[in-house]
Structure formats: C-alpha cells, structure tokens
C-alpha cells in the first residue's frame, strides 16, 4: 500500500471534527505509542478514522540508537497494531531515548561516529525483521553535538539509510532548527540526502529563543521553513507531506488551511521543475 498527498498528525482534540466533517486531509499519521493500549477511546477512534482515511504509524520510543537492544516485546506490539490498522508504513526517529532500561522520553542526539553507525545499522536490520517491513527513520532537531563526531548529520543519516536499507522521513523543520542551532547550511543537508529513499516529509512550527530554536510544534510553520520545503520539493518531487502540531492545538480547519499552503508550494515547485 502507498499513500500520496497531504496529511496531518492525528490528535485526540480533532477526533470529533474529523469524523463529523469531510476535512481536506489525504491521510493521518498516528503516534504509535498512543494506541499501544488495551482499548477504550484511542483505539475506538483510530478504528473509525481508519475506515475513512489512509494511515501511517509514527513511533517515539523505538530508541534505535541506544546501546540497549531493540525491545522485541514493544516491536511485537507495534506489529500487532500494524496488522490491525494496516498503515502504509511505520516510522520512528534516528536518535536514542534512554539507556540501561530507562526512558528519558526525549529524542536524544547521537555522536556521528563509526561505532554509532554500525550499531544503528544493526538495530535497523533487527527492527525491520521484527516488523516484517522496511521502516522510515526521521532526522530530529538537536541542540548539541559531540566532540567525537566524525561526520555530519546528513552523512550519518544517508549512510544509515543506505547500509541498513531503510527509508527516510525528512523533517524539514528539524533540518532548519538544527541548522540554526549548529550553524550549518540546511540546503547542503538536503542536497546530500539519497533522494530515492525519502518517503515522507514533516513540517512543523518551532519557537525562537533568540540565539537558538526549539522544536516545540506549538505554532504555525515559519517562512524560512516553507522556503526550505520549496527547496525540498524542487529536489525530491512530490513526497507525501504532513504537518505536526502537538501544543496550542488549533481547530482542525486552521491546520487544513495551513496544509493548503503546503499544497500550493508543492504544486508551484512541481510546475517549475516540469
């Protein structure tokens, strides 16, 4: 199965609005962990929304870069969820969330070293085996880099994707946030990626703290990120694109209006390329 067009992150605040109207949304992305529960409202609404919309699953606790081995119980749960809801694909983040059995519930950065690369590639292989499918890994926003890094983030991400044979979920806002926080050229990042592996794009708002940006998903997308999205369209073509909003969640119509901006940029970019 495949999806195309423009989606939104599925948030409980919008369940009723999604089901009572006909929102101009081609698909939804559900946070995997929110539906790894025994029953009740979350699964009820996911079921009803799935009956009308295409779906992808997006995890936040895979912790692919942790030295802890992949959690097979968790993966079995994700696979079961996927068997029930048939998402077009499953994604998570290129990061780690904890070590020695703890969970910091944050998307923590990796050092870009050969050791980390070998470990992540091995873990992706095990995860893809356990899930019985190729996964997408997303670049995260980061606020620090390690002295031990031997390559750039884009080199690391590209190497992981190629060696582990996984796909990429490109978060354009995260590229922009990290480019400001670390002082790199976001376009150089995009140009270095293996285009054929980019399967999905995330867009989101962030907060500007003056000398750094924080990936808060609590505000509309800023102009610089829209511009970078236009660059991504020019480079990679029509990639399924969606908006993530996790805080200050506005009415659904406000997000579908923002999604129309993405549609316009994409259409304009594709016409230009053609």
């Amino acid at each position: 199965m495949n999806i195309s067009g423009f989606g939104l992150g599925l948030r409980p605040d919008h369940y009723e609005a999604i089901l009572s109207g006909s929102p101009a949304v081609d698909w939804f992305e559900a946070i995997t962990e929110n539906y790894l529960v025994p029953g009740g409202k979350p699964l009820h609404f996911l079921q009803r929304i799935r009956e009308r919309f295409d779906l992808v699953l997006h995890g936040v606790s895979l912790s692919i870069g942790s030295v802890d081995p992949p959690d097979l119980t968790y993966l079995a749960g994700v696979r079961q969820l996927a068997d029930r809801f048939e998402p077009a694909w499953i994604s998570d983040h290129l990061c780690w969330t904890g070590v020695d059995g703890l969970n910091a519930h944050d998307l923590l950065p990796l050092p870009y070293t050969q050791e980390a690369l070998t470990l992540v590639v091995d873990h992706v292989g095990r995860v893809q085996d356990a899930l019985g499918r190729q996964i997408l890994l997303e670049n995260v926003s980061s606020y620090l880099t390690f002295t031990s890094s031997q390559m750039s983030e884009w080199e690391f991400l590209s190497e992981v994707a190629q060696r582990a044979d996984c796909a990429i979920l490109l978060d354009v806002n995260n590229v922009y946030v990290s480019s400001v926080n670390h002082g790199f050229d976001p376009l150089q990042y995009l140009r270095a990626l293996p285009a054929a592996r980019i399967r999905q794009i995330h867009l989101a708002g962030h907060s500007n703290n003056g000398d750094h940006l924080i990936d808060t998903h609590d505000a509309p997308i800023v102009t610089e990120v829209w511009n970078l999205y236009a660059d991504a369209v020019a480079l990679f073509g029509a990639i399924p694109t969606m908006i993530e909003r996790d805080d200050n969640i506005p009415p659904l119509a406000e997000l579908t209006a923002e999604l129309d901006i993405a549609r316009r940029i994409s259409r304009a970019g594709l016409t230009k390329v053609a």
Partner: peptide, 25 residues
C-alpha cells in the same frame, strides 16, 4: 564508548551530573 556517552548524557538529564560536559562540542 557509545554506552558510556549515553550513560553520561542520561545522568545529566536525571540528576544534572556534568561528566558529559567535556564531550559536548
């Protein structure tokens, strides 16, 4: 080693320990 780096960053989150500080660029 990666394990040590992750332990030290996690310790900073949990209790503010600064072992990781010299490894931040």
């Amino acid at each position: 080693p990666l394990h040590r780096l992750q332990q030290d960053l996690q310790a900073h989150l949990l209790n503010g320990s600064v072992e990781i500080l010299p490894h931040i660029a």
